[in-house]
Design a protein around this nucleic acid. Structure first.
Length: 297
DNA sequence: CTCCAGGGATGAT
DNA sequence: ATCATCCATGGA
């Protein structure tokens, strides 16, 4: 198998693919097999280089955002202890440029799901509705286009273990397929308008909209707030406050972390998610079993 | 078995 | 504006 090589300073492939921003790459022979758009691709890191096949170098550079000025981005972070720790831990982690529909569809599925579940749903959709390709001895699946999902039934989507998300995905797929939602032309919109458009789609609220903006539209200021980030920010930046309203939290995050807040968010998220033991997450606030027990008394 | 997860939509205060 | 509830599913 013939592999191409490009120099990739300031890049950590494994961290990038394992940080919960993309869900379909599978470890394969010391690297990763997956798709970039409709092309099957194999990628492998060797020190300061990336070896790859299946796609042209230009596509690799664009997809993995090797043009993002990482050093400059990290310099723009607020200089506090939590942020320094996250930046050090996540050195080389890049926010990639995903295909817009693929990213949107995947994050509609993400609501109230762990990363492992999202991977399963993505794979199930690909297996049932997508295409098959082979690269470097691995079988990979392309993500089905919107019109392919739009012509499916809700029942068929539920069989991919989507649960209540099936209806939202179906309705959004129809909006994209029939042109009501033109994801490509939305690239020209300013942040606020893009966010508003995305939030009109079924199953898309502020959190999913910000994920899509960050991971597919190159809006590096977009700051998705999920349960992890909420926990981290409250713990690190509002340690003594009893109640922090969601509005206050949103306001703080969009101001404090600056022009590349999305990167800051991803670094804080990845550090917390990969180093917080499950036990420690359960502390803080009475458990539901206790609440339920009190009600019964 | 319980608990929780990269939430969103809706309706009641 | 803030809060409660429901929505399915499966890993830990």
């Amino acid at each position: 198998m013939k592999l191409s090589r490009i120099r990739t300073p300031d890049f950590d492939l494994a961290k990038t693919l394992g940080s919960g921003q993309v869900f379909h790459w599978q470890p394969h022979e010391g690297g990763f097999a997956g798709t970039i758009g409709d092309a099957a691709a194999f990628v492998e890191q060797r020190g300061d280089s990336v070896l790859f096949s299946g796609v042209p170098p230009k596509k690799v550079r664009n997809y993995f955002a090797l043009d993002h000025p990482l050093a400059e981005i990290c310099r723009s972070f607020p200089n506090d202890e939590a942020m320094r720790a996250a930046a050090q831990f996540c050195r080389g982690l890049r926010i990639i440029r995903q295909p817009k529909w693929e990213c949107l569809a995947t994050f509609i599925c993400s609501s109230m799901k762990q990363v492992a579940h999202i991977r399963q749903m993505s794979l199930a959709l690909r297996k049932r509705f997508g295409g098959t390709a082979r690269i470097a001895g691995a079988e990979v699946r392309t993500f089905p286009p919107a019109d392919r999902i739009a012509s499916a039934t809700e029942q068929a989507l539920r069989e991919c273990a989507l649960g209540y998300r099936a209806k939202n995905l179906l309705l959004t797929a129809r909006a994209v397929a029939n042109g009501d939602a033109n994801l490509e032309t939305w690239s020209d919109l300013p942040d606020a308008e893009l966010r508003a458009r995305l939030c009109e789609l079924p199953g898309v609220g502020a959190k999913v909209a910000n994920c899509v903006m960050l991971f597919a539209y190159d809006r590096l200021r977009a700051f998705p707030i999920d349960v992890w980030i909420e926990r981290v920010v409250k713990e690190k930046y509002f340690p003594l406050c009893r109640k922090v309203t969601s509005a206050r939290l949103r306001e703080f995050c969009s101001e404090y972390f600056g022009e590349h807040g999305g990167y800051a968010q991803q670094y804080l998220f990845h550090l917390a998610r990969t180093t917080t033991p499950r036990r420690r997450r359960l502390l803080g606030g009475p458990s539901r079993s206790i609440v339920r027990r009190k009600r019964q008394q």
